[in-house]
Simulated assay, not measured.
Amino acid sequence: MAPRSDTTPTQINQEQQKPQPLTSNNLTINFMTKKSGISVDYLRDYNTGDDIIFEDIIDKIQFNPNENNTSLFFLLDNEYIEWKFNGNITNKYKKEDRINLHFKVITVKQYKGITFESIDFFKDSSNGINKQGPYPCISDYLK
């Protein structure tokens, strides 16, 4: 198929390479081996520096005033996974909203030639999980 007259070949390649959004299920699968389904510390379809677009439906949302964070819940294999964000964002999001977030694949560490990867949101959440600071702001992942 010939390119449109108003589109250069470079523009067409950039549009074709645009990453497809991942749901919570797709993101989880990326942290598993293809053959055995065992959880691993790298993303099988992404490399350090890659962008991941996350898009899923919020199944539940809950603000915790004691900790000043909001939990977003996504359904994964009949169980909820919970992601926490700093502050009260319940005025911006509600159950059944489709949310779109942008993450970056990062290197967590390297050991004997093996690169351990994660996404920036998981690393940024460690302060809140370890009670050493707030959870990340959702605005850091909106584009």
Rank of each mutant, 00 (worst) to 15 (best):
Q20V: 15
G37K: 02
E79F: 02
I61G: 06
K104H: 11
M32C: 13
E96V: 01
T70Q: 02
L27I: 08
L75M: 15
Y135I: 02
D41V: 00
K131R: 13
Y42K: 11
K84G: 02
K123N: 13
E67G: 10
P21M: 10
F85W: 11
D41G: 13
S125H: 08
I119A: 01
N30L: 04
I119Q: 02
N66M: 03
G87H: 05
I138V: 12
K92D: 15
A2N: 12
P21F: 10
Q20D: 12
Q110K: 15
T90P: 05
F121G: 00
K123R: 15
F74G: 03
D120E: 09
P21E: 06
S126E: 14
P9A: 03
L75Y: 01
Q14C: 01
E79R: 09
T90M: 11
N86A: 12
E67I: 00
T70K: 01
I89Y: 08
N66C: 00
T107N: 14
S39C: 05
N26W: 02
V40N: 00
F116G: 01
P134V: 07
I58Y: 05
D45T: 11
E79K: 14
Q20S: 14
R98L: 12
G37V: 07
N78A: 13
E15R: 15
E96C: 07
D124L: 09
N86R: 10
K143Q: 12
F54A: 03
G113C: 03
E79Y: 07
D77F: 09
N78I: 00
K60Q: 14
S39L: 06
S125W: 13
S118W: 06
Y141C: 04
Q132Y: 08
T48R: 06
D120H: 10
N13E: 15
Y42T: 08
L22F: 11
S5R: 05
G49H: 10
S125P: 09
Y111C: 02
